[in-house]
């Protein structure tokens, strides 16, 4: 029974971590799909989201208010970054990628100046810190909340992508940006929207993840490779792929740490490299 418990609990933890990674990875994946760039400032959005949420909590005391304010603030940051700096570079992925790194450094310093170098935790409301009993197991309610949030966001995104006109335009841009422009889709506007949506989702992840990862300098570049793992395994530009990738990375990370602590990160990144070598567009990405 004990060993069964171990597997169930670890699986649950893995899934809830995967839920967080989905929020981070979905945006990164869409940005890649639309703009063909890897946004190395994506981890910074995650971290800044957590910091902005802290400020909101300190000033208003409201955790529920902190989530939308932080996510929207960072969405605006992403929007400005895309409009003012990335867009003028035109279609030059390498320079755009390098530019995002420059911003990651600037954000790092800004965060250090504004929020100091201390480690913070984002404390969720009392109601979410309890545990629910399910089939004889005590599951932390907060992790259930994380899974529910990711699920809700995922469904909304999926519906928007599959059922709306705008979603169809985004999919067309992912498939072939040049052709999409040819049929009159404003791909520049699509890029702008997707970039700020990605920043929004990453910041949302940062707020929600702040409760158990904490918020501290360096988190940005610690979480970034995991987001890449999600995107690579799932396939770049694919929402469903990001969901599956997030789940796999969440589980692999959890079980890796529990079962083979000495090589736990290796067990995460080596499969990622192998997948890329065999199928550069990821498991579920389109050629």
């Amino acid at each position: 029974m004990d060993s069964l418990n171990f597997w169930v609990i670890q699986t649950f933890n893995g899934i809830s971590y995967g839920a967080l990674l989905f929020l981070l990875g979905a945006g990164l994946s869409l940005i890649f799909g639309v703009m063909r760039i890897v946004n190395l400032a994506h981890g910074s959005y995650f971290l800044l989201g957590g910091y902005v949420a802290l400020t909101v909590i300190w000033t208003t005391g409201s955790w529920a208010l902190a989530i939308p304010v932080a996510a929207l603030t960072i969405a605006v940051v992403g929007l400005l970054m895309e409009r003012i700096f990335l867009r003028p570079l035109g279609f030059d992925p390498l320079r755009q990628v390098l530019l995002t790194v420059g911003f990651a450094f600037l954000f790092q310093q800004a965060a250090l100046d504004i929020w100091t170098g201390n480690n913070f935790d984002i404390n969720p409301p009392q109601a979410l810190t309890e545990s629910v009993e399910f089939a004889g197991l005590f599951l932390p309610l907060y992790r259930v909340f994380m899974i529910a949030t990711a699920l809700a966001i995922g469904i909304v995104l999926w519906l928007a992508m599959e059922k709306t006109r705008l979603g169809a335009q985004v999919r067309a841009t992912v498939d072939d940006a040049q052709m999409a422009r040819g049929v009159g889709i404003d791909t520049s506007r699509i890029s702008m929207m997707i970039f700020s949506l990605g920043a929004f989702l990453a910041a949302l992840g940062g707020v929600i993840g702040g409760a158990f990862l904490g918020v501290y300098p360096g988190l940005d570049f610690e979480i970034l490779p995991l987001a890449f793992a999600v995107v690579i395994i799932g396939g770049m530009g694919s929402l469903g792929g990001a969901a599956i990738g997030a789940l796999l990375v969440g589980l692999a990370d959890n079980f890796g740490k529990a079962l083979f602590p000495e090589i736990s990160y290796f067990t995460l990144y080596a499969p990622m490299a192998l997948i890329l070598a065999v199928k550069p567009t990821g498991l579920f990405g389109r050629e």
Partner: peptide, 20 residues
Amino acid sequence: VYFLMITLALGQCVWGLAYR
């Protein structure tokens, strides 16, 4: 960009071993 990503993954493998 795919080369960028795969070298990142490989670099992380080495980091993972060094760290753990």
